[in-house]
Amino acid sequence: MFAVICALQFPLVHTGRPWLAYWLLPLPNANGIWVNFRSPLLWDVFAVSTYGTVSFLFWYTGLLPDLATVRDRARHGLRRALYGILSLGWTGSNRAWSHYEKAYLLFAGLSTPLVLSVHSVVSFDFATSVIPGWHTTIFPPYFVAGAIFSGFAMVATLIVIMRKFFRLEHVVTEDHLDVMNRIVIATSLMVGYAYATEVFIAWYSGAAYERYAFLNRAFGPYAWAYWTMVVCNVVVPQLLWLRRVRRSVLLLYPIVILINVGMWFERFVIVVTSLHRDYLPSSWDMFSPTWVDVSLFAGSVGLFLTLMLLFVRFLPAVSLAETKAILPGSQPPARRAGGGHV
């Protein structure tokens, strides 16, 4: 969710006149015109705003019981009042739990296709354009796999530090790291497969511009970026096949850091190498970031880390109620057949 907040800045800056960003929405206006619903850019407006809203609601709903716990443990009056207000008066009533658990399950169910849709829609922004290297049908699944891949790598990057600092090794165990790394390796293979397919189709399609775009990626002036991406995203994660690497913080940490770097380079390769040489050689150029580009990037990293640190400082980072519910001995033994609880 913090990443969504950071990410939202960029389209806002990109509108050129951010104070007119509301023009993106289908609002009645004096000109009597409407936004173009056939444009993926508009789909993106809906996808990203829905994603942001639903992520926030899911996150806040999940925090409610824990906010109540924090409220009742707070010693300071102001803290108690603030957490009290935020917890919306949660009492741990089972009549509430009964509805709450259904609601939470539904939220999880809604969020899964939402993740697929938001990344597919973002990829449509590229795929429906005519730029060689962007105009491909593989983009939606490729972006979804890339998002899960980089998402898990980023979560691993953060959780490894958090479990160390907050001594959560008994809560976020090596088993958890292990299964996360299994997902990383699976999605790494998907991403690698997508890279290979792109290259194959560029050759197989016989489209000259497409073929040139990929030759230029791999052997042109930005070959270093392309091969950094391939090495970080496809080659390095192969080390995670080894059980020892998956379970060792020291061994897996450099790998997940490299994946973060690799995924940044993936965006760079997609955006820059396709644009710097398109149809007309007269418009060819090299990309050199301005100080504004660099500071926007640095600013987004700073914003993300600030929000993240504020979150772990003031709110429970690991769900208290969920952890309690799965502790050994926390649930009554099943007494009759079918007495289970969904």
Binding site: P65, T69, T91, G92, S93, N94, R95, W97, S98, Y100, E101, A321, E322, K324, A325, S330, Q331, P332, A334, R335, G339, G340, H341
Partner: peptide, 17 residues
Amino acid sequence: DCHTPYPVHGLDQAMGL
């Protein structure tokens, strides 16, 4: 009502919810 720190399995049936 019952008040619990976490959702207890089988309590919905026990309460007849």
